[in-house]
Design a protein around this nucleic acid. Structure first.
Lengths: 201, 201, 201, 201
DNA sequence: TTCTAAGCGAGACGGTACGTCCCGTCTTGAC
DNA sequence: GTCAAGACGGGACGTACCGTCTCGCTTAGAA
């Protein structure tokens, strides 16, 4: 149910059609609540905030966090598109810096905390979160890394996943747990630290 | 109240003294539940498991997660002691490998997930978790790094906190979110990746 | 909420309609418990006895005693109807004897004790108890008394409320506090005692 | 334990003697609380108010209400002494008027409500209440009535207990349940109403 | 003086009921 | 078929007292 945003356009169904505006209101409400209020996200509150019925939420989503994930996915298009020009190093560096920038913004970072909390609590949420949020972004980085390995810009024997972990997980770590400053330069610091390990010989 | 494990030895108080065996039973119950069952940790279940009264738990802890943190702190002494011999690099490398080892063990990793979930939900839990779990371990690594910087083994201009993030947060990331394999070699891979960024020029 | 037994017949409301059978089961449970067990009446036990959820009781009543009052009001129609034939004296006398009879029956008297205990503890219960239980019955007696005063059967200067007190409060007193025998003749004794004070000159 | 105010004077016991001042403070606290606050009387609050330990209260009384009864008995000596001069009618009339006066005073009436509530809830309290409070006062009235019956001032066939009920229970009824005005004249009204039923033929 | 019994305060502990919150399911009527 | 409204069972929460207990300190008479 969740994250199946599209209702197949050709599907001519009987009965009252789903209200698209309502869906938007619900997603908005979830995003707003996740940003302003704390972590406590429940169908009850979202429904109230959206002026919708709780029943409706249950019809379309299995948990508030999956709902929130839908909201986040529609509202944050970050770093799924990227330049294909320049060196692999430059492109990867830009990715890291972008990530810091976006995750430090409250309207992305805050809901992400709620999402992460959900992922830790609920296995299904975790799977969705990885599949629809983390993995697509890791894939972009992976592509760049593999490009660089092919062109010889990077070492041939890199463990791609480990590199991605080293570059990006510190950002999530600071956002979610330590709350250390996520300033502009943190991305650069991180890159400078890991970059030497990428170059050949 | 929580994490104030210290039993003031000279404190001759009036009133019935606290039952130490009971405390142990409770901490055990929490640790066990956190390892076997899922994340859902509640005073109700812990009390039942420990054969204690729910009221008693409320008397001593503010939340199940703080209770669990106490249990973890008493049961996991990991990496607060470390050799002071060998090169800084070797000692730091050992730290990373140790961390992987211990966090991948179920009786540490599982409760840690519950703890992290609590930290994301409850600000007070987060503070305690950082103060009593994360920070002491980061401090050890920080000391080694600073040693290496003084002896010239590492670059002078390292951002110590960022280095620690790069080395350790990937482990937590895999444990908590991606659940990618946390095998023996992951520590080494990580170290090999970051190490070049530590050496001077 | 309480004692608003009225089901507005025309009220076509949206939402799932209230289950009338459930309501009956709850009232029955309360009445039964109040009769058999002691005074300790709690939502917990009533819910269990009725096979209902505690939440449901809270939805409809503010206290177990108000619930019980509802039950009593629906089950005891005593002395709200009365003959309008015969002398005022005869009718009043019948009222008193009736009262003794009914209050000495366990299925009315026992719950009434619980109700009175509630009325002493909880101001709201007291108000309801007076409004819905005591007052309507006093009103009947008052009407008879006033009839008699108009026709000259009784003295003109009677303090109606005081007469009612003298005639009926001894019954409650015996039921609730002294537990002295509430036999058939007690009503007659009482009547014979007070009656001389009612006649003119 | 309760209502055994006197420590047998000859009893020379070992050990620390009971602190009489403390006992007074506790009784005072109970009386004060019963007068000002509502009905909710508990050992917890009394102990706090009296600056005593809860344990101490449990040592000496079985329930807060029994404690309160002790307090009332020591503080209210009402109508246990009475004139033995004048006609029986005059003396009985004075008794009724006195009762109204005293029960309408807040420092007697309010605690009495708490006491009555306890009597309805707890069988032991009820027994004590009747034995030490109600019965002694009824006995005085009974004596007067019997005097009058012997002298021929009253009818020979009176049901003494019923007469007492008719005269006094309305006062308790108003105090405890209806809260109708308990003014000066209520006693007289009551007397005037019942008195005709007492005189011979 | 020392011993011993009791009074007393402090506080731990198990336990019960409370009233609330949110959850997930259901049943209805309206669109 | 969608949606709002709302009843219902259920579980956990955090709190308030309750009654019992185990301490240590104190106060006395008895040995």
């Amino acid at each position: 149910m969740s994250t199946s945003a599209a209702s197949d356009p050709g599907a001519r169904t009987r009965g009252r059609p789903r209200d698209p505006a309502l869906r938007e209101r619900i997603l908005d409400a979830a995003a707003t609540l996740a940003m302003t209020a704390g972590i406590e996200l429940g169908f009850e509150r979202i429904a109230q905030e959206a002026g919708a019925s709780r029943t409706t939420l249950y019809r379309w989503w299995d948990s508030p966090q999956e709902l929130l994930l839908d909201a986040m996915l529609e509202r944050t298009r970050w770093s799924l598109d990227h330049d294909s020009e320049g060196t692999a190093a430059a492109r990867l560096r830009a990715q890291v810096i972008d990530a810091v920038e976006i995750l430090s913004a409250p309207d992305t970072g805050r809901p992400l905390r709620a999402l992460a909390a959900g992922a830790l609590t609920n296995e299904k949420v975790r799977a969705s979160f990885i599949e629809h949020w983390l993995e697509p972004r890791r894939a972009v980085a992976a592509t760049i890394l593999e490009d660089g390995m092919i062109t010889g810009e990077f070492r041939q024997d890199l463990d791609v996943q480990a590199v991605i972990d080293a570059l990006f997980s510190p950002i999530y770590h600071r956002l979610l747990l330590t709350r250390m400053p996520l300033g502009r330069n943190f991305g650069e610091t991180l890159w400078n630290l890991v970059e030497p390990g990428l170059s050949p010989s």
